[in-house]
Design a protein around this nucleic acid. Structure first.
Lengths: 139, 139
DNA sequence: TTCGATGCAAAGGATTTGCAGATGC
DNA sequence: GCATCTGCAAATCCTTTGCATCGAA
């Protein structure tokens, strides 16, 4: 059983309907090594002969995000990107060619969170951390 | 000489024109303890009896950002916020009441940057780091 | 059958652009 | 006077909403 099958089965067992767009979106996001925009997703669906309305895709990513199957990331581009909820990680984005690589380094960030809780009195803290620079090719 | 005067004088010496909107925007951003949206800025200008067009404000923040007088921050709200370029820092945002507090912790992030450079081959790395949680009042 | 998924059109909000006119220096 | 700032209208881009219909289970 593939990871995609697992996720879809899980959704089904939670009582959600399984549609072709839903299934393919999960597969596309599993196969992508970079967070995708709504437009990216639509283009990839079209290559699979699916032509859902843009609204449907917006609603579908909202659905998958609410169930924590995928995560929303924002690099300050004025649009959102989506990726499968893997082990929590961050990204390095090339400011020139927009290449995105994953980076993980959470233990340390967690220790920050604790310090922030102490200092500010905030609770149940999440965070976003993104790095920007020039990739080896663009330097 | 106030900080605002310093900034304005500096702009003038760089050969830029000084307008009332420009001057007041710098003052407003210096006085704010939280990053402001375009709409926030317009409202604050109106309290000072200035009614610039929204486009003007967009162009003005672009101007000030390009000169690194102010910085753009993005909390994934679908709109940008602006704050005076102070010592580099981060924010804790209350997901409920949207209260924003500053946090600084850069030495550690810098050590991350170094690790990222080593691991990924990226260069001249900047970053964004924002924390989200519930402020003491909203808990 | 039923509830959720879908399409379509329209609206909403943030941001950008083109161009003519006004203004700082 | 000239470069730049400004206003206004329009356009663009991303996202959301309302409503009628369709389809998975």
């Amino acid at each position: 059983m593939t990871k995609a099958d697992e996720i879809i089965l899980d959704l089904k067992q939670q009582g959600h309907k399984i549609t072709e767009v839903r299934t393919e979106l999960v597969k596309i996001l599993l196969e992508s090594d970079t967070p995708l925009t709504i437009i990216d997703l639509i283009k990839k669906l079209e290559r699979k002969k699916l032509k859902p309305n843009k609204t449907t895709v917006y609603r579908e990513v909202e659905f998958l995000r609410d169930l924590e199957v995928i995560e929303e990331v924002d690099f300050g581009e004025g649009k959102k990107r989506y990726e499968i909820s893997n082990q929590h990680h961050h990204h390095v984005v090339c400011v020139n060619c927009k290449t995105i690589k994953d980076v993980s380094m959470d233990k340390d960030i967690d220790s920050y969170s604790k310090r922030i809780i102490e200092k500010t009195g905030f609770k149940s803290i999440g965070h976003t951390l993104e790095f920007f620079g020039l990739c080896p090719v663009c330097q």
